[in-house]
Write a protein that binds this DNA or RNA. Structure first.
Lengths: 206, 206
DNA sequence: GGCGCAACCGTACTGCCGGTACAGGAAACG
DNA sequence: CGTTTCCTGTACCGGCAGTACGGTTGCGCC
């Protein structure tokens, strides 16, 4: 058990690095096998096929991301009791975290999967979908609390607003990759922060 | 000349459909060759390798996107002389265009390339980068004009704001693919519209 | 009218990659 | 001691990108 799961984890670690660096297709099983110092048979003992590897990768990635969001917004909540302020602090912490990645965010596995849709089976697509819906629910709850205290200046769909957090991060990663500017994602998150701040700020007298 | 470029265009058409539907890797040359009713030799006469196909696909795609943006915002400009209103109308037209695609936006080839970075050569990455910078310049010019008339409520980097148009579209596409909800992209564009509207609206008295 | 070149065709081949098949072995566990 | 877990080793298949290279067809040009 101990030895088995250890090898499995090692395969996942190696595969994750390669996939984030080169994409899923460009990562060969032979290459993973060589790096993990096992044989091809060993790989196929742990994963029936490459699809299963993708699934395991995505599920693990979702757990990690969830844990990061939990930590980030829990810390933000400790710094302010106000739901709006706490959220704004959370976004700033997120931006700082993204900025601390010298080579930019390695890239979301969810997006990688989304762009290779057809070649993955239902299990992978479902896992992907559940992850996004989970993030929507997370941020929706925060916006519900915020909107209860600060009525939005303009009518907005809070589900869509919740999705916007993810949209901006995913889109930001695409942009930073395309531009070769790691900082692009951070800028986008901070713009979203400005949006949320304005949306829920009470009208100021001129 | 006429016959030659005709075949080349046919290859690109077929390849584009397949790539948007299945992804670049999942699209085989054999398959393109069969659909175009040519031989493999014919394909490699037009493109030295698959990378060159990707490059041609991206360059063509950028031209089309540019033309679409030209048309969209030119029509918007005809509807209003005010730069802010024209931009807001342009975003709405963009949203309508995205909504009219029944199966959602087929997916931006630029993003597909961004997520398979390493397997493409410099030429592809450079083309991608130029496209994004072009879009930045386009929207930056609009925001310059807007900001000159309506000072923004909050200090924002206009380049980052210009990038946000693309960010939201690209991120929206990722989200709609992951969720299986084609409408997600439209919602995100309309949220961006709300943001821009608020950012440049003069303070209203309460 | 022949010459040349662009635009292919046909065939045969290489090497990588995902995946299969199957036999066997070491070590931990009960 | 036997079973199960966790692999190794070897051999193989079909699909795919790409190479090599000789042959062919049609159109423009002198």
């Amino acid at each position: 058990m101990a030895r088995g799961s250890e090898t499995r984890v090692r395969i996942l670690d190696i595969a994750q690095d390669a996939v984030l660096a080169k994409g899923f297709d460009a990562t060969s099983i032979d290459e993973i096998v060589a790096a993990a110092e096992i044989t091809k048979s060993g790989f196929f003992y742990h994963f029936p096929d490459k699809n299963a590897l993708a699934l395991a990768l995505i599920e693990r990635h979702i757990e990690v991301e969830d844990a990061i969001f939990d930590d980030l917004f829990a810390r933000a909540r400790e710094l302010s009791d106000d739901p709006l302020h706490a959220f704004l602090i959370g976004l700033r912490l997120l931006a700082e975290m993204l900025a601390d990645m010298p080579n930019g965010h390695p890239g979301c596995i969810v997006a990688t999967a989304a762009y290779q849709d057809r070649q993955f089976d239902r299990a992978v697509r479902d896992a992907n979908r559940r992850a996004v819906l989970g993030w929507r629910a997370r941020f929706r709850a925060m916006f519900d609390e915020i909107a209860a205290r600060y009525p939005p200046r303009e009518p907005v769909d809070l589900d869509a607003l919740a999705d916007m957090v993810n949209t901006v991060v995913e889109g930001g990663i695409v942009m930073s990759k395309a531009l070769g500017e790691p900082g692009a994602t951070v800028d986008q998150v901070l713009l979203l922060r400005t949006f949320v701040k304005q949306l829920f700020s009470p009208d100021r007298p001129v």
